[in-house]
Design a protein around this nucleic acid. Structure first.
Length: 370
RNA sequence: GUGGGUGUAGUCAAGUGGUUAAGACAACGGGUUGUGGCUCCGUCAUGCGUGGGUUCGAAUCCCAUCACCCACC
């Protein structure tokens, strides 16, 4: 028995309604996972994150390794205790930072040598090291240390990075010890090439892991390209394991992902754009900075019952943002997270009732995608 | 009333005869997808208090005038 297990409850087309069990509780899927990179969902108290309905959050190996250091988190009693979050946690492996911190690192077969963005010091992240750090953090789901190819990238580059990702995955699996407390998810690469996606999937699925992610998407490619990749890529993954689309978080992508059989999503977008003054609402994005909201005393989203919408007006939120008040980040983050988590809840219900596509169309119409 | 000083965008200002008048803040608009982000990118003075004049050319020099500030009566 793995630490993390998946149960498929119902299907509506390819959309799946499922349940993931972990040492820290169960997760209803499809699920949206708020991101808390540095052991905090920025501008949010854990109680709030829980209250708005999030069942699992993400944190980050690379960032916690550099600061405060995984030994300290371990000494604190693990990440759950350290950050006061007793529900499931998924940690990313640091693979994506290798990609996003591009100019500060060198990739070799052994691993990735990089310079700290904090103080410039040199470090080496390898599959083994990533497992060690994630083990110290004590997260429920740990991710394989992969190499995320950029977009666009030529075939040879993508093929090499996918094959290295497989070799690294084998090393991750070998180094991963506490299989009864944490589960390792593999990551598919292969860029925008169908045969390479197939090759990557076959290689990682052969290792029989408790879950699989699709990586290398949402890296700047157009939406239709990503959907095209998802159209075939998801089918290369086993039905009885959770499928996680990494880094996806605009509402439309969530729907497209669920429609193609994905179960898990994460994204910094809701909290990041919140801090920069944008809200996601049922009627589409609202840029609270706009002058037209100066005297708009109505709530952000008329259909929303989150703490922010129940108690504050657009005019007030605009004022907070313009005045550089931290409540602006707090209130907008709360709303955006609630919006995505709540949308996922509605998606789950629609799958249960066999009307996912109807709900998708309804949502798109209101949001302004159609 | 006398002497001195200052007037450049909403604000603070650079510029002291030579191409389309720095910059910052504010304002306005946009971006953001496994977080190097309270961030990044755009737009924003046909005009330099006003009116004349000198000059090939004036925010820059001259005259007048107005406003404000500081001293002294």
């Amino acid at each position: 028995m793995n630490a993390v297990n998946y149960e498929l409850i119902k299907k509506d087309g390819k959309a799946r309604r499922g349940r993931i069990t972990t040492p820290h509780g169960t997760i209803e899927t499809p699920v949206f996972m708020p991101v808390g990179t540095a052991a905090t969902v920025k501008a949010m108290r854990p109680e709030e994150v829980k209250e708005l309905g999030a069942e699992i959050i993400l944190s980050n190996t690379y960032h916690l390794y550099l600061r405060p250091g995984h030994e300290i988190v371990k000494e604190a009693g693990g990440l759950h205790k350290f950050m006061n979050w007793d529900k499931p946690i998924l940690t990313d492996s640091g693979g994506f930072q290798v990609f996003s911190l591009g100019d500060l690192r060198t990739i070799t077969e052994e691993g990735v040598e990089f310079r700290s963005f904090i103080d410039g010091s040199k470090h080496m992240l390898t599959p083994e090291k990533s497992m060690e750090v994630q083990n110290a953090l004590g997260s429920d789901i740990i991710m394989a240390f992969d190499e995320c190819a950029p977009y666009p990238a030529d075939r040879d580059y993508v093929k090499n990075s996918l094959e290295r990702t497989t070799r690294w995955l084998k090393r991750c699996k070998e180094a991963h010890k506490d299989t009864d407390k944490q589960s390792l998810f593999g990551i598919m690469q292969g860029g925008m090439y169908q045969d390479l996606r197939k090759q990557s999937a076959e290689e990682i699925v052969a290792l029989d892991l408790p879950g699989y992610a699709i990586g290398g998407l949402s890296v700047g490619e157009p939406k239709d390209i990503m959907c095209e990749v998802l159209d075939y890529a998801v089918d290369y993954l086993p039905e009885n394991k959770p499928r996680y689309l990494m880094g996806v978080g605009t509402p439309d992508y969530l729907f497209e992902g669920v429609e193609r059989g994905l179960d898990m999503f994460d994204c910094v977008l809701p909290t990041r754009i919140a801090r920069n003054g944008t809200a996601m609402t049922s009627a589409g994005p609202v840029n609270i900075k706009n002058a037209k909201f100066e005297k708009d005393f109505t709530p952000l989203d008329h259909e929303c019952d989150c703490y922010t919408c129940k108690n504050y007006s657009r005019a007030y939120l605009r004022h907070l943002f313009k005045a550089n008040e931290m409540m602006s980040s707090m209130l907008l983050s709360n709303h955006n997270l609630h919006f995505l988590v709540n949308t996922m809840e509605k998606i789950r219900k629609s799958i249960e009732e066999n009307r996912f596509m109807e709900y998708k169309e309804e949502f798109y119409k209101k949001y302004g995608y159609l």
